[in-house]
Design a protein around this nucleic acid. Structure first.
Lengths: 344, 344
DNA sequence: CTGAAAGCGCTTACAG
DNA sequence: CTGAAAGCGCTTACAG
């Protein structure tokens, strides 16, 4: 490595005939507080500006224990992530933080492994979509004093910061929308995960169905190897469910990849369904907008989610006081009514 | 922070009645080389295993100048990125590296800003989809001795490691496929970016058209604010182009978000086109597979791209010798023929 | 108003 | 075979 050797505080001190202490104080904006004379302060400031001095983050980190790195752990890097990532990134870098994006694939062992690594390298803060069984690990993180924010789902038994959407209410509204459009036998296709985002959507569905005195048609599939869109197993299960339940006149998918799988199956094996049954899904996707037919969907407020997460995290990082106040944010979703949920 | 104080080498040394030097040698697998007795070595190894000692990465980094972090810079976090990210992540973590994913939005200033930050924190290696004008910055990185790999596109004038696909050949084949299916007036819709991935695709198109003695119909739009799928401006331009060029009986989109925009416009303003004109696009997307009609596409080998990138990077990181050998990899794409490109 | 010095936790050249 | 010590580049309590 061709070393146009980096400048160090020592160099600056030597060049200006002062001590490293003085330079450090000036660099850290403590000149006033430490009563460094204006003359010296200005001289140093001008000099660091001239040589474009940048402190060595590594040394700072070693000394202070802060790395200026935030972890952003999601389930996978598709759709939802893509919508949030750029916003998160831009907000973080603007404040001098780097973001380590990573995916836990909703697996506990991967989550734990990653968290352990990040603890080792002394990450400043954690924004996490938790996998089902990592409540103990999250608890540990919090007890050790790390700023932690969960999102998309949370652990009701754990008092922690989180940002989620109104899954239950949105699900209730989506179901009710189908009911109002005269659908009578509304299937609910979901996963068997027992996490809040999914159980709340189920609750909303059940409530609306119960209120209307209709029958429940619930299918919950296990998603082991979620290779996103090419989940043969999921396709197979949905196909089986549709075949076994010919009564259905509408389907509500609990999340977008289920809807994708469902649409694939319908187009292939039940093409007449497309114009016959109502379809709605949680979690909007760009292409639902121009699929034929266009697909009605519950749309999550990506910008608000990302913004809430980062604002909250930056607050946590800046508050010297280990403030024991916990912030829980529930954001509103929007029901995008398109053609798939119109009366048939 | 509740400090169940981390163990340090000093602690280990004290607890075992040896010096930190000895401990360090053992930790770094230099026991043999440094002739540490088997007895001492074993004792230390057993001890660090018992207390689950993990070295402080920060201190190591400060000392060695290595951070065990790789940067993976893409244009944006959609589609292409999602396909590569998990593979990259898993390969990296397995080897003890962390990955800083970031997006440059194909803007030079953002690229440069990010690279400067990463140089500051002494990132070990750079995998970059370069924005149009950062050749000087890339050159600087290389000259300073940083391992750098470009991908998706490269600078022909710069002798550097890269991983790309056979854009020109694939584009030639895609165009030829349309020609063989009797399309005579094939439009080419692309961006005005002068980067290899795009210019090569244009070349392939032109070559096939020329060979067949057909007319060229080329539209190249500027993509300023690429907010991915909701690019009103792009929609507008494509609509205008289609209106002004009624001769077209087929369209070849140079990349997937152009195809998405095009499909939206066609569905909305030229619905009869769907069954009338041929469509093919570069860069496959999951939903092209179950759009109506299914869309033919040039599919990139995501797994091979990710794997090549990481293997190459790990090689670069491990070779002590500043090997001056440059690796240039061009991977094969696959033409997925679906219904949109069938003869009409 | 400013500085000498300790220390964050490592690695390694040097000495014995 | 093993250890004392310097040094990576910072921050900050302490002293004057």
């Amino acid at each position: 490595m061709i070393n146009k050797k980096r400048h160090s505080i020592k160099d600056i001190a030597a060049a200006n005939g002062v001590s490293v202490t003085t330079v450090s104080f000036v660099l850290n904006g403590k000149a006033k507080e430490k009563k460094i004379s204006k003359a010296v302060t200005d001289k140093i400031l001008k000099y660091i500006d001239k040589i474009k001095y940048k402190p060595n983050q590594l040394a700072q980190s070693l000394r202070t224990g802060k790395t200026k790195i935030i972890v952003f752990m999601v389930e996978d890097f598709h759709y939802f992530f893509a919508k949030l990532a750029t916003i998160i990134e831009n907000m973080a870098y603007k404040k001098g933080y780097k973001v380590l994006f990573c995916s836990n694939e909703n697996k506990d062992d991967k989550s734990i492994e990653l968290i352990n690594i990040y603890k080792d390298i002394q990450i400043d803060g954690y924004i996490i979509i938790p996998s089902p069984g990592i409540m103990p690990k999250i608890k540990e993180l919090i007890e050790e004093g790390h700023p932690v924010i969960l999102f998309d789902r949370y652990f009701p038994e754990l008092d922690t910061n989180y940002v989620v959407v109104n899954n239950k209410e949105a699900s209730y509204n989506a179901t009710k929308h189908l009911i109002e459009n005269k659908f009578k036998n509304i299937g609910f296709i979901s996963t068997d995960v027992e996490q809040t985002q999914m159980t709340d959507r189920l609750k909303g569905y059940k409530e609306a169905i119960f209120e209307a005195g209709l029958n429940e048609w619930i299918a919950r599939f296990s998603i082991n190897e979620k290779d996103n869109l090419s989940n043969k197993n999921l396709d197979f299960n949905i196909k089986k469910f549709l075949k076994q339940t010919p009564q259905l006149d509408a389907i509500y998918f609990a999340t977008n990849y289920l809807a994708i799988s469902g649409l694939k199956v319908i187009k292939k094996h039940f093409p007449n369904y497309l114009n016959k049954i109502g379809i709605i899904t949680f979690d909007d996707l760009d292409f639902f907008e121009f699929n034929t037919p266009t697909i009605s969907a519950v749309s999550q407020p990506h910008f608000e989610i990302a913004q809430s997460l980062m604002n909250l995290m930056l607050n946590l990082l800046n508050s010297k006081t280990k403030s024991s106040s916990i912030t829980k944010i529930k954001l509103e979703t929007e029901l995008k009514i398109r053609s798939s949920s119109q009366p048939k």
